[in-house]
């Protein structure tokens, strides 16, 4: 078993959305390499609480990389230094003794800080509500095997559907664009036969909501794809653009 580490943390502290934030430095001693990053913060918080200080607030829930609640910009990278995992899956053995670790919230105008490292990602829900669905009521649907879907199409739709809505794509983007997130849902439903009837309406409604929320434009940098913990491809963005232009140019009547 490897030795415990001592780390210097520079953590963004901000009381609420209306207050100015700042970095505060903390020493984290006896950090076991077996801890997850969030468990390391738990231990720091236990100490802060006992000292009568306010613990560091951050969003987290499942701690197994699927709920999308955890966030954190760690040393300038969403979800930290490793590829294809979320912050809750990051372990302290990815750091070295005496490292300085800078921890910030997602930075985007459309994700206002709630407190410390927790931000409001409600914009994502509103974009989904604008059109990220197939309009079917409960009941009265055909048998599940009534439509055959080629496996390659189903698999590709699945790849888009793995998005966990964490917001790392927005945080990674210099423009704070939400194109990867929006295009993943647009693609999933555009690929599947169930999504066809509303295809051109959906893409316009979701993009309109995305713009209304104040996300930036896409300039094809690809940082979103590089930092996505679910490794969602920017091919989705190309697909969404194609559908969007098609909708605007020749499918107005379907929108």
């Amino acid at each position: 078993m490897s030795k415990n580490m001592n780390l210097t943390l520079k953590v963004w502290r901000q009381k609420n959305a209306d207050t100015k934030g700042k970095f505060v430095t903390y020493q984290a001693g006896h950090v076991s390499p077996d801890m997850s990053f969030l468990e390391m913060l738990d231990v720091v918080n236990e100490d802060l609480t006992k000292k009568g200080d306010d613990p560091i607030h951050f969003d987290h829930d499942c701690r197994e990389g699927i709920c999308g609640a955890c966030s954190l910009h760690i040393n300038g990278r969403p979800h930290g230094p490793k590829h294809g995992i979320t912050t809750c899956q990051l372990h302290m053995r990815s750091f070295n003794d005496n490292d300085t670790v800078v921890i910030e919230p997602w930075r985007a105008e459309a994700f206002p800080v709630i407190r410390d490292l927790a931000v409001d990602r409600g914009a994502f829900d509103r974009i989904q509500a604008a059109g990220g669905f197939v309009s079917v009521n409960t009941g009265g649907v055909p048998d599940a095997n009534a439509i055959a879907i080629p496996k390659v199409i189903a698999d590709e739709a699945f790849n888009s559907a793995t998005c966990i809505g964490c917001g790392a794509c927005v945080a990674a983007c210099k423009n704070a664009s939400a194109m990867l997130f929006v295009s993943a849902k647009v693609s999933q439903l555009a690929l599947l036969p169930q999504g066809q009837p509303e295809r051109y309406h959906r893409v316009q409604a979701m993009v309109a909501q995305m713009d209304a929320e104040g996300f930036g434009s896409c300039t094809n940098t690809g940082a979103c794809e590089a930092e996505c913990p679910k490794e969602i491809s920017i091919t989705n963005i190309a697909r969404m653009n194609r559908d969007y232009f098609t909708a605007k140019l020749i499918k107005q009547e379907e929108a």
Partner: peptide, 22 residues
Amino acid sequence: VNIIDQCVAQGVPFAREYGGLL
């Protein structure tokens, strides 16, 4: 049995065989 029908209608991407069925 109704649940599976409902989910597929919503676009839930269940695993499929090469023939396209679930």
